[in-house]
Write a protein that binds this DNA or RNA. Structure first.
Length: 994
RNA sequence: GGGCCAUUAGCUCAGUUGGCUAGAGCGCACCCCUGAUAAGGGUGAGGUCCCGUGUUCGAGUCACGGAUGGCCCA
């Protein structure tokens, strides 16, 4: 190969060049490796995954580790409503995989069983959407069959995606909440919880979607703008409470004096849902508010809160001056007055409630316990403690059916069969006709909608099965504090949620799920559920799945029970019905600690498992449902550590949405960059907060990946003739730079290990990056290249450098495994057997089996850091000084210059002397270094630059010796060896060795 | 509307209990090398530490208020 045209500075010895055509390049030890510079991730990563599968690497790992020393990360099941995965799911799975792989390398037994959540409304809806003619043209059994097929098909799709991310786990045996055994366990768990008395049947308002005809969990409700009515309605007073029936503070004499004031007066309520008025059974006011009685021309005497008087008056189109304030009452004074319902022959008592506010309205709240949570709670309280209502409790009335249509319970003939929202206008008309309507308008506000069909939802009291949280709330809260929450603030988050949450409504009026395993006697509506029946159902479901509930009659379901029990329960004599509600899907996933972990105890060990790791939204979801069920069953939390991550936003910090077009698809990323680049992104961001991703971010990750790859490639290329068993050089024989580099390696390994122990992967990324860029590429490689290439292959200092390189490789390779397992494997597979750093007969089949590197105290040498900090800062000054002649065209590479270092600083001078001029020249990659205490005389005919920094003067001048044709250094020994007129002494020797 | 969290260079992150001129790597610009080559080396330019007020000799750091974004709730 011919050298390209030289620049002016090379023209110093043109005759020598032309005189000798020998191609010395052939005699150099240039890097040789099959490890490719380009990853070719799209194909190579797939090959590597095939390699893992073929050699059962995951299974090998498990088999080799000690089950007694376990770290079990229990997978939270993604929902099978789609066969695609989101970037957020990718983030989640990759984090889990990094954790698992790291712990495995640390010697833990780390089984990972991927899971899937296969029941639930979204799946059912997706399937129903594809049924021509709607859901009722097929049987429920058929619908369930299709749901199952749909879920399983999606599982296949998601699984392919997960595996392609390089996620390690028991893919042959995942858990699915629709497995017969899982479902059977769920039946058993329900029975156990029922038996312990946590389950009750209640009438309670819940979010209800009339179009989906189902109750909704809080999490299934989304808020969106909605135009509602805003109406003010009169409730005339009909009766005052008898003496002694009111609040204790009530002064009867005082009351009597004031009563005439109230005679003929009406409370004014404000509501945004006129259609709930047929269900009105009370009014609520606040004990501490002041209420005024006013006289109006059009509406007579009205009662509203004083603080809201002004807004109320202006709303009904009056001036404050036009109304006459007749008197004032404290809220407590008005309690238990009875008012008349505006259009139903019924009384509505006035109750006191803390939920009444002065934000809007009149300070008098229309109370329909069947249509509002707070209404329900205040009524329950009065029914419990107020003697009047203990005798005749206020009813929980909810006169609309599943489809949102009024029933005859509304006691309004015009409304019968009318959809609730249509009822608004009818109610308005009735109020108008009765003269009860003071004012009506419309306004837009935030209102709950069904997350599935996007229609407005209502509150509706229905019969449902509940879990009574109060029975174990304290235990649940105590269990929270036994858990290590990562980040710490997660503790407060879930604590306040559990502290304040209401009862858990288990019932869902759907078919795609696990049935609530309860029978009713048709005659009495009594409930039939016993441990024997549960045990029987458990056995049968285990074989036939929960489909059985839809396929068999109660008698068939219970046919296998012992005759004695049948007799006892009256089976065959009294007709039975099945409960046809299914369980909330959060209950399904909430019991994976039992249906998965305990069921596979041999493999997964006992509860609590080491870690749950999900997005921070799961404080309300899976973390909570798992905690609650586990506390009910076992009295303790199911996990020791709960790690959470934030959400994935776009590059500018905005939520991803199809409409904004800023969605990042993990498969697109993989196609363009490969899974390891995506994994590197996961490791690089602070996942404890929300994280960002976009084109720029990914490009940067790709750059880092390439840098790491090329750094390793350089090492591999220069170890082609190195056998650690034969050529390793003892530490004592290494140069100071070698030892400094090994110290740096130890330092960085320490930082990396610490980062992993604290789960701070982004710190790991910075360390790896810095190691490759600064310590290796820019320093160690740059400086030692000359030795590696030009020394004789067996030269001791070359072997020393190789020893150091091998040390770096041995440390970096295992450390790359958790984050970039494909890259690590690619490196591993290109290593010759002799360089595979397996100890004690480990399998050499995969890099993933390499243990995490142990610190090597022998390589720790802090004193070297001090001296090298100084030397490297001088190198920086030298570089700056060399920029001047370079920019002026005098030199190109630094070897074309030599430098003189002048210092009067005794310590620095000593350090330079001790280091030695040759060593300094090597470190600075210049041709010669002179250390002096006084500035030398300079040859005015040549270029020179001077730069002073930190008490050291750097003087750069042209290299003063001929260039060696082989190593390109400017050396005094060039031409001194017979037969090699163009070579320096070292190269002459090296050439002989070749 | 309420609660929690975040905001340091174009990007990803450092910045101890308040204390030198706010750092690193990448990216960018310019230069060099052509024996790591769709590589490699060097130099350099980038910051209203989200904004405001306060506490203090001194605030990226502490307090209060606000903005923007996110999560949860109503």
């Amino acid at each position: 190969m011919n050298r390209t045209t030289k620049k002016g500075h090379r023209m110093q010895e043109p005759s020598v060049q032309e005189a000798n055509p020998v191609n010395y390049k052939e005699t150099l030890n240039l890097p040789q490796t099959a490890f490719k510079m380009k990853a070719g991730a799209a194909t190579r990563e797939v090959e590597i995954e095939a390699h893992w599968e073929e050699h059962q690497v995951y299974e090998t790992m498990l088999a080799a580790s000690d089950k007694a020393h376990a770290f079990v990360l229990h997978d939270g099941p993604p929902y099978l409503s789609s066969d695609k995965i989101h970037i957020g799911t990718a983030l989640n799975k990759i984090l889990k995989d990094i954790v698992t792989r790291y712990k495995s390398q640390q010697g833990f037994y780390t089984p990972y069983v991927p899971g899937y959540d296969g029941h639930g409304l979204p799946i059912e809806n997706a399937v129903v959407k594809n049924i021509k003619g709607g859901r009722h043209v097929i049987t429920e059994t058929e619908l369930r069959k299709r749901c199952r097929e749909f879920a399983l098909a999606n599982l296949k799709g998601q699984e392919v995606n997960f595996k392609r991310l390089g996620i390690w786990g028991d893919w042959a045996h995942p858990y699915i909440s629709i497995d017969a055994e899982f479902e059977a366990t769920q039946i058993r768990v329900f029975g156990e919880i029922y038996d312990k008395g946590f389950v009750y049947k209640g009438l309670k308002p819940v979010y209800w979607c009339p179009s989906c005809e189902t109750a909704l969990a809080d999490a299934e409700v989304e808020y969106a703008d909605h135009v509602s009515h805003s109406i003010y309605v009169k409730f005339p007073i009909v009766q005052f409470p008898g003496a002694g029936k009111g609040e204790e503070a009530l002064n009867v004499e005082e009351m009597d004096k004031r009563v005439p004031l109230l005679d003929g007066a009406s409370f004014v309520i404000w509501t945004t849902t006129p259609w709930t008025l047929p269900a009105n059974l009370a009014l609520a006011i606040h004990a501490a508010f002041v209420y005024v009685v006013i006289e109006t021309a059009d509406h007579g005497k009205l009662i509203v809160a004083e603080d809201l008087l002004e807004t109320f008056v202006s709303t009904i189109g009056l001036e404050l001056a036009q109304v006459n304030v007749l008197g004032k009452f404290c809220g407590t004074e008005l309690a238990l007055i009875k008012t008349r319902h505006p259009f139903i022959d019924r009384e509505s008592p006035v109750l006191l409630g803390e939920h009444v506010t002065l934000d809007a309205g009149t300070g008098v709240v229309h109370t329909a316990p069947g249509h509002g949570m707070e209404d329900y709670l205040v009524v329950q309280e009065y029914n419990r403690k107020e003697p009047v209502f203990q005798e005749t409790p206020i009813e929980i009335l909810s006169p609309v059916d599943n489809a949102g249509k009024f029933t005859d319970e509304a006691r309004v003939p015009e409304l019968l069969g009318v959809f609730y929202s249509k009822g608004n206008e009818i109610v308005l008309q009735i109020l108008q006709d009765r003269g009860a309507l003071i004012q009506s308008s419309k306004f837009s506000h935030s209102y709950p909608h069904c997350w599935r069909c996007q229609n407005p939802v209502i509150y509706r009291a229905t019969e449902q099965w509940f879990i009574d949280i109060n029975q174990f709330r304290a235990d649940a809260l105590a269990a929270i504090d036994t858990v290590n929450w990562l980040p710490e603030r997660g503790r407060n988050r879930i604590f306040s949620m559990v502290e304040g949450r209401g009862d858990w409504c288990l019932s869902r009026q759907r078919v795609w799920g696990v049935p609530i395993p309860i029978f009713y006697y048709q005659d009495t509506r009594e409930v039939l559920i016993t441990p024997e029946i549960i045990a029987h159902l458990y056995e049968r479901f285990k074989v036939h799945s929960s489909d059985l509930w839809w396929e068999e009659t109660p008698e068939q379901l219970l046919a296998g029970l012992p005759e004695a029990l049948k007799q006892q329960y009256g089976i065959g004599q009294r007709l039975l019905e099945k409960e046809m509600d299914i369980m909330d899907v959060w209950f399904d996933s909430g019991i994976t600690h039992t249906a998965v972990v305990k069921a596979r105890q041999d493999e997964l060990g006992d509860l609590p498992v080491a870690m749950y790791l999900e997005g921070s939204d799961q404080h309300r979801g899976w973390f909570q449902s798992s905690l609650l069920t586990s506390v009910m069953l076992y009295g303790k939390a199911p996990y020791q550590n709960v790690m959470t991550h934030g959400f994935v936003l776009d590059e500018s910090g905005r939520k991803m949405s199809k409409s904004l077009g800023n969605v990042v698809d993990p498969n697109t990323v993989i196609r363009e960059y490969g899974a390891d680049v995506l994994r590197l992104w996961v490791a690089s961001v602070d996942y404890t907060n929300d994280v960002r991703i976009g084109k720029g971010t990914l490009h940067q990750m790709a750059e880092i990946y390439k840098k790491v790859r090329n750094t390793v490639r350089f090492i591999l290329g220069n170890l082609y003739d190195f056998d650690p068993a034969q050529h390793r050089v003892p530490y004592a024989q290494l140069s100071t730079l070698d030892r400094y580099s090994l110290h740096r390696l130890q330092h960085i390994l320490g930082n990396i290990t610490e980062a992993f122990e604290k789960w701070e992967f982004y710190r790991y990324c910075h360390e790896i990056q810095y190691l490759c860029m600064a310590d290796l590429s820019a320093l160690y490689f740059d400086v030692t290249k000359d030795i590696l290439y030009s020394d004789a292959p067996n030269a001791p200092r070359r072997r020393a450098v190789q020893t150091v390189l091998y040390e770096f490789l041995s440390t970096i390779l295992p450390v790359l495994v958790p984050v970039t397992p494909h890259l690590a494997e690619d490196i591993w597979l290109s290593l010759p057997e002799a360089q595979r750093m397996c100890t004690n007969g480990q399998s050499s089949v995969s890099a993933a089996l390499l243990p995490w590197p142990q610190p090597n105290p022998e390589h720790v040498h802090p004193a070297l850091v001090q001296s090298f900090d100084t030397l490297l800062s001088i190198k920086e000054t030298v570089n700056q000084a060399l920029e001047v002649p370079r920019s002026e065209g005098h030199i190109g590479k630094s070897l074309q210059a030599q430098v003189t270092l002048v210092t009067q600083d005794a310590d620095k001078f000593a350090l330079l002397q001790q280091t030695g001029e040759d060593e300094l020249a090597t470190l600075f990659v210049t041709s010669g270094v002179t250390v002096a205490q006084q500035a030398p005389q300079l040859d005015a005919s040549q270029w020179h630059t001077r730069l002073e920094s930190n008490g050291i003067q750097v003087i750069a001048t042209p290299a003063s010796f001929p260039e060696c044709a082989r190593c390109w250094k400017y050396e005094p020994t060039v031409g001194q060896t017979a037969g090699h007129p163009l070579l320096c002494a070292r190269c002459s020797e090296a050439v002989k060795a070749h």
